[in-house]
Simulated assay, not measured.
Amino acid sequence: MRSSSSNKCVLFPCLFFACILFTISEKLVAGESDKVKLNLYYESLCPGCQVFIVNYLVKIFDSDLHTVTDLKLVPFGNAKVSDNLTVTCQHGEEECRLNAIEACAIRTWPDSKKHYSFIRCVENDTTKWESCLKNSRSEKAINDCYNSDLPKTLILGYANMTLNLKPQHKYVPWVTLNSKPLNAQSPDDFVAQICKAYKGKAALPKLCKSSAFSKSLESKVLKLQVSYADEARK
């Protein structure tokens, strides 16, 4: 395929510049199959989930780490599904509502950077989450999604993903890296784990080599407040 692309650049000079840009971008951004798959299983009103989303996941998009990371957010957490497919959330109806809103955002903006930005805004202050929606260009699309039957389908899909985890999740936030669980209670090293797990052909992200990153590894490890799956429900 590469030789074919080179021939096209020779045969069609007008495409030469575009070909160079494609080649450069190919080297800077990992292919989808090469990316490290980072999944976050969470629920919207879990304090530890909020901290992880707002203060830790942002490192992916505030740096070049996103070029090698395939982030998937799964808003279901420790909810339960009854025999008649009714979903009960650990922190009550408001959590179910916000989980559904965030599920609609993920559907509306398939690009992880876009839906993460919205979800981070929501989780930064869930009492004022509507301001995040008003600032969105896709307010109507998200509202239309939320007011339809689609959220139930989306949440049941996330329920299936969460309830079929192997090993089963014990608490949220629950983080997996290439399907293997990480210790989300000690979130500081998840960047290091992504750097270590990346085996693709693209250049290693600058963050993985930076002095700031090295210093962060030497800092005191913080502990997140987690919500256990067997805790009492509100």
Results as ranks from 00 to 15, higher is better:
193 Q>V: 01
223 K>L: 07
80 K>T: 12
167 P>M: 05
192 A>E: 07
93 E>W: 03
99 N>P: 04
107 R>E: 15
74 V>C: 01
157 G>F: 03
214 S>H: 15
180 K>H: 09
229 A>I: 09
187 P>I: 00
11 L>H: 13
202 A>L: 11
179 S>K: 14
165 L>Y: 06
7 N>W: 13
171 Y>D: 04
6 S>V: 15
38 L>A: 06
232 A>Q: 10
207 L>W: 09
42 Y>E: 07
26 E>W: 14
58 V>R: 12
212 A>N: 13
63 S>H: 08
231 E>I: 03
181 P>I: 04
52 F>C: 08
136 S>R: 00
111 D>H: 12
91 H>R: 10
115 H>V: 07
90 Q>F: 03
222 L>P: 10
5 S>A: 14
169 H>E: 01
147 N>E: 10
156 L>G: 08
74 V>N: 11
93 E>P: 08
85 L>P: 00
156 L>K: 01
106 I>M: 13
51 V>A: 12
174 W>F: 05
115 H>P: 04
231 E>R: 08
93 E>K: 12
150 L>F: 10
213 F>Y: 15
62 D>C: 06
39 N>Y: 01
110 P>T: 02
54 V>F: 12
70 D>N: 14
183 N>F: 02
137 R>T: 14
110 P>M: 09
30 A>G: 10
213 F>C: 08
183 N>M: 07
122 V>K: 00
55 N>P: 09
205 P>S: 07
55 N>M: 09
233 R>Y: 10
51 V>L: 11
168 Q>T: 11
87 V>I: 14
3 S>W: 13
77 G>E: 02
43 E>D: 12
141 A>G: 03
53 I>S: 11
56 Y>C: 07
9 C>A: 15
192 A>P: 00
63 S>F: 04
57 L>V: 05
144 D>Y: 05
165 L>C: 08
37 K>M: 01
186 S>K: 15
160 N>K: 14
217 L>K: 13
230 D>H: 12
130 E>Q: 13
83 D>I: 03
59 K>M: 09
65 L>W: 04
47 P>W: 09
44 S>D: 08
107 R>G: 06
10 V>Y: 11
231 E>Y: 10
196 K>L: 06
198 Y>E: 02
50 Q>G: 13
102 E>A: 04
20 I>L: 15
211 S>R: 14
73 L>R: 03
166 K>M: 09
120 R>L: 04
203 A>V: 13
80 K>D: 07
190 F>A: 00
128 K>Q: 10
52 F>N: 07
185 Q>M: 13
197 A>I: 02
138 S>H: 15
133 L>G: 00
37 K>S: 06
222 L>R: 14
64 D>P: 02
108 T>N: 10
121 C>H: 01
50 Q>T: 07
3 S>L: 13
79 A>S: 13
